[in-house]
Amino acid sequence: MSVTQPAAPLRVVIAEDAVLLREGLRRLLTDAGLDVAGTAGDAAQLLELAGALQPDVVLTDIRMPPTQTTEGLQAALHIRHQRPATAVVVLSQHVETGHLFELLGDDPRGIGYVLKERVADVTQFTAAIRRVAAGESVIDPEVVSRLVRRPRRDSPLETLTERELAVLALMAEGRSNQAIASQLYMSPKTVETHVGNMLAKLGLQPAAGDHRRVLAVLAYLRG
């Protein structure tokens, strides 16, 4: 394989019941250089396309016909179960952690849970899809913030500094130390120190791999 050969574009299947939005997404992703292999208007279609096209990424709305509850989520879980290599990005209109934890299960690699309105920021949105396709976890900052800001009594979280809380939130969003360092304008070394201190304070084991860390931190925050 030659290094000069451009990597094949990510193949994406989109599932969204609102036609305008579905077409908007197709255009957005196509413009961003992704290959939209197919689009679906409901969960059944999505399952069919995912099976037939074997896409790298499935991007699906949680709520779809016919029951308008969690068809998209259930379909995504099914696809993950059939083909764990498929990255899944779920679009939610609600800030509900229940869905998030159901989706994450015990392996958050290649999973994204983002609020639907994130599509407005084209750059960040496509970046999120690419990160998920690369096996990272992407958790919407709004959802994480809900967990972090939640009032607590007698919790070690109260002993954390603002800086540490910001690091913690980014960890929960699925960021690597490298990414946290660049986002908070800190040296990777400082980030590592913060992370170590914090995990000790919260009584969490320093986990091997970012995805383990995401699960541990989110579970702790939800606790």
Partner: peptide, 10 residues
């Protein structure tokens, strides 16, 4: 509104 945001974003 989401569709609108998307359009604005593009």
């Amino acid at each position: 509104l989401v569709t609108l945001s998307l359009a604005i974003g593009m």
